[in-house]
C-alpha cells in the first residue's frame, strides 16, 4: 500500500460510516452533525487528490454554510430534538431496488471504465488557488458570471418566498 492509500482508507471509511448514519439515524439534529463528518472526510479526500482549493471551498461552503442553514431549517420547522419514530416512509423496497441499481450501474460503468487509469499527482500544484483561479478566469468566465447572477436570483427568491408581507400569500390577499 502506498502512503496515499493508507490515508485514503480511514478517510473513506469515515465518510462511508457517517453517510450511513445520516441516512439511518432517528434523530434529525444528529443527521445534520453526521453530515458534517461525512463532508469533512470528503474534503480530506479532495486534499488527497491535491485539489486544495476545492477542499477548502468544501469546508467553507458545505461545513460552514450549508449545514448551518440545514440546522436552521430543522429548528425553524420545529422538528423534534430527540428520537422520532416516523422518520422513514414506507417505500424501503423501492429504495433498495433503486440503490442496488444505481450502485451496480455506477460500479460497473464508471469504476470498470477507469480500471486501468492512474493518478499522477505531479508536484501537487495543479489544485492550488492560483492555478484554479487562472483557469477559472481564463476559460470559465461566462459560467462564473452566470453563477453570480444565479446566486443573486436565489437570494431574492428566498427573501420573497420567506417574507410574509411580500410573499405569494400576501399578494393573493390570503391570511396566514
Amino acid at each position: 500500500m502506498t502512503g496515499a492509500e493508507l490515508v485514503f482508507v480511514p478517510l473513506g471509511a469515515v465518510a462511508l460510516g457517517s453517510s450511513v448514519l445520516v441516512v439511518t439515524t432517528d434523530q434529525l439534529v444528529r443527521a445534520a452533525l453526521w453530515l458534517v463528518v461525512a463532508l469533512g472526510a470528503l474534503a480530506g479526500c479532495f486534499l488527497l487528490l491535491a485539489a486544495e482549493l476545492v477542499a477548502w471551498v468544501q469546508v467553507l461552503i458545505y461545513v460552514g454554510a450549508v449545514v448551518v442553514l440545514l440546522l436552521f431549517g430543522i429548528m425553524l420547522t420545529r422538528a423534534p430534538i430527540g428520537r422520532s419514530v416516523d422518520l422513514d416512509s414506507g417505500n424501503r423496497v423501492a429504495a433498495l431496488v433503486v440503490a442496488l441499481g444505481t450502485a451496480g450501474t455506477l460500479v460497473t460503468v464508471v469504476v470498470g471504465g477507469f480500471r486501468t487509469a492512474s493518478i499522477d499527482l505531479g508536484d501537487g500544484s495543479a489544485g492550488s488557488a492560483g492555478t484554479v483561479g487562472a483557469g477559472l478566469f481564463r476559460y470559465w468566465v461566462l459560467p462564473f458570471e452566470l453563477l453570480s447572477v444565479l446566486l443573486l436570483a436565489a437570494l431574492v427568491g428566498a427573501i420573497v418566498l420567506s417574507r410574509r408581507d411580500i410573499g405569494p400569500r400576501a399578494r393573493d390577499g390570503g391570511e396566514d
Binding site: 485514503f8 450511513v20 429504495a95 440503490a99 450502485a103 460500479v107 469504476v111 477507469f114 493518478i119
Partner: peptide, 20 residues
C-alpha cells in the same frame, strides 16, 4: 494510486444518498 477507490467511494455515497 489507482482512481478506482475514489470512484468506488463516490458510487457508494451516491447510492446512499439516493436511498436517503
Amino acid at each position: 494510486m489507482t482512481p478506482s477507490y475514489y470512484l468506488l467511494l463516490s458510487a457508494v455515497l451516491f447510492s446512499l444518498g439516493a436511498v436517503g
